[in-house]
Write a protein that binds this DNA or RNA. Sequence first.
DNA 1: TTGTACGCGTTATCAC
DNA 2: GTGATAACGCGTACAA
Lengths: 338, 338
Amino acid sequence: MARVTLSDVAREAGVSLATASRAVNGSVNRIVGADLRVRVLAAAAALGYIPDANAQAMARGRTTSLGLVVHDIADPYFASLAAGVTRAADARGIMVSLSETKNEPGREIEIVNLLDRQRMVGIILAGTRLGDAAQDAALRDALEAYRKRGGQVALVGQELDGVPALAVDNAGGAVRLAGRLVDLGYRRFAIAAGPVNHRTSQERTCGIRAELARRSLPVPDELVVHTEPTRLGGRQAAAVLLDRPERPDVIMAATDLMAIGVLAGIRDAGLDAPGDVAVTGFDDIPVASDVTPALTTVKLPLLEMGELVTELALDPDGGSPAPIQGEVVLRASTPPRR
Amino acid sequence: MARVTLSDVAREAGVSLATASRAVNGSVNRIVGADLRVRVLAAAAALGYIPDANAQAMARGRTTSLGLVVHDIADPYFASLAAGVTRAADARGIMVSLSETKNEPGREIEIVNLLDRQRMVGIILAGTRLGDAAQDAALRDALEAYRKRGGQVALVGQELDGVPALAVDNAGGAVRLAGRLVDLGYRRFAIAAGPVNHRTSQERTCGIRAELARRSLPVPDELVVHTEPTRLGGRQAAAVLLDRPERPDVIMAATDLMAIGVLAGIRDAGLDAPGDVAVTGFDDIPVASDVTPALTTVKLPLLEMGELVTELALDPDGGSPAPIQGEVVLRASTPPRR
DNA sequence: TTGTACGCGTTATCAC
DNA sequence: GTGATAACGCGTACAA
């Protein structure tokens, strides 16, 4: 009930509103006398005064909140990323507003506008959009309008020209992973790729195929199947791939989540992984090492990526940092072959 | 740069500020004439006007944001809960502000004050606090102050007298799970319990021990080990438990995360799960069914719980709903014995 | 160092 | 139905 404002504090302390304001926040180059300051602070404490961030935001012209937009917070990939973001934001006294785009296509634009109207200091967009030209343009417009008002934008895991981004070298990681598999003795490759218009999946698939072609082990189109980038998608992909005349000896999935689905699909088919078919993922989400067999994958420093992209969004430093280079992690799902 | 305000829109449309305001938000019992409304809306669109939520919040006296406090967003349990919260909030046009308490004890109080100063409409506290009497009191005070200002508070998975909470019947679920295991033929039980002062773990452990005692299979103290509620903790617990003279035939973990750690610990010891030792968890986080062997556990409807607690926080309906009853899910980690 | 007064962008209370 | 105008809670020139 009792809404204590700064005026109440000022009156209680017997000082002007301005002095009270300066005392509670330590305004620059305007020092309050020690005696008055303690009086104000005491009054504030006595009254249980808590500043109104909204009013401060309006008076100062800027808020202290950051918008984080992910596809699905229950997805371990985004959850880890979000953990990094909240940690970095916390360290700077910034609040994090979380939004999910889910699968709805226009949702991203809607959310950007929502965050814009909240006057967030920055917006972090995580997760690859499914590239629809018209919506891409609309999103770019929304972001441009936001930036015109002084907002900072940073992307992670996706690109949009003119917008600072923390890129991931998906192709490079895929190349290194495929290379290692060839070295391990694998010869018949299949790919559980994500949706055809899913940028990240595309890059990973291309990297794999390029490296394998270079090694004279090109992957025929019928051994590349596109499904949703989820466990279910991976499972479905495995079902299709294991039904091919010549069974692959390794299925490379576009993400760890899909790889876990592939493992399930292999079991569905009454086969053994990695005995009959080996499996690889990408991302190294926390559970990747917990499943059986533990997943060979390309490790992305998700937590640090979250922190990095937060700095990118909060500091107007300038250009985008170098792309993240994933590290190949060999585990039980791909034992040496032959 | 060009910060378009409602005044700009009003001027552009040739109407008063008041009319513009009424046109853009559709204020109650004050209808704007159709012709003027379209003019205002057109002007707003032309100028790229986006309302300032902070200003609206100040004028209206209430914001449109909800605070969500979790222990660690990278933990699948909280991630799923958060997904439910964001979904329910989204449906009501409410923004979600995410904060992590991590392990720091006083952090929870700090965060409540932070959310208070943001004038959040509600605060959802998820995750069991480690019960320190003094800090409990301090937290209660902070929440009380917040509620006095009109804020709504809701807890999930923990209790604090006088605060609406979505409770989980941990003891009941544990009782049912233990009972099923006895029915399956298990006799030598061990418990990978969480921290001793971790409320949720306590309740689950007590439920298990009570049911087993009732079945004349009391669990001796040396077969109950307390570790952190993490994978590492579960792994450590397994190491200790498997070193006991008489090896247990099933290890019941306080959470799925710990159970996954227990699985790893069993492998560390060169044993097989469930061949040598069966394992159970609690929560049914998404990965519980993906690990090998798939985890027997008590399924909690995490997503719905997130939605429910959001309603609880947003609607001043009154009392707390009935405790959530987890459902026992039998999987490969506990095959019938004998 | 302290106080006065205005502005931040919007809603709500009055009159008209 | 529409328009002035006073709040909302705070920061900050500007003056003292």
